[in-house]
Amino acid sequence: MHFTLKIWRQAAPRAKGCFEHYAIDQVDGDTSFLEMLDMLNNKLVKENKETIAFDHDCREGICGACGLYINGRPHGPDDGITTCQLYMRRFRDGSEITVEPFRSKAFPVIKDLMVNRNAFDKILQAGGFVSVNTGSAPEAHTTLVSREKAEESMDASSCIGCGACVASCKNGSAMLFVASRVSALSLLPQGKPEASRRARAMVLKMDELGFGSCTNIGTCQMECPKKITVAHIARLNREFLYCKHSDLQE
């Protein structure tokens, strides 16, 4: 197969970027999208041209490092996968493919297709954890957790922190990301005591970091590679409201 790639190139965070065109051929359908980019980069090395920077690591859809905006969709044309799980057999031979970084105010471009998602870490630092010191946990079976709750928590906890939800949202909101963590923890008895405080701290941090607010459009859910649903946003809102009430009462 052969393709024309239209790829965003940008030398540095504040540099002006532009699209460049590249041709690539002899691509096997079983080659992954990132392997195809490897091929292109190796071709560039042979021509002594600077390679295209992009984030990646596990290449099996779990680390959340990869994330490209391909033909107008985060992680490309298929549902429920990350960029690294996309294979070239998915594209029409000879077609043009547009590749851009995830774009959002809160994710400044570092170089080419690489963005800074540090804001996600900061949101989690604001409260995305259970405050328990090492060594103080009771025996694991002291608190039972119903299977349904554990499974639901696991669904929410599947978030890989890739940022596709933010990139897909016209408000640039991180609600789905925040909701996934809040929900995963508040569904478990272990995470309950801090649930409201957690929700509040994370939402406030999200606002502070320049993410937009949620207007229930739902593109995040459509583009999430782990199929996290907006039902978790509803739970987040509940925790958040509860928090406001209890604050008022105090």
């Binding site: 259970v130 328990v132 079976h141 608190t143 039972l144 299977r147 554990a150 995963a184 478990l188």
Partner: peptide
């Protein structure tokens, strides 16, 4: 090894459970 499981449960790891809620 056992203390690890205790601690991870406390940290909110959604380990697989059976219908009665046990790990």
């Amino acid at each position: 090894s056992n203390a690890i499981i205790d601690h991870c449960v406390a940290l909110g790891v959604p380990f697989a459970r059976d219908y009665a809620g046990y790990l």
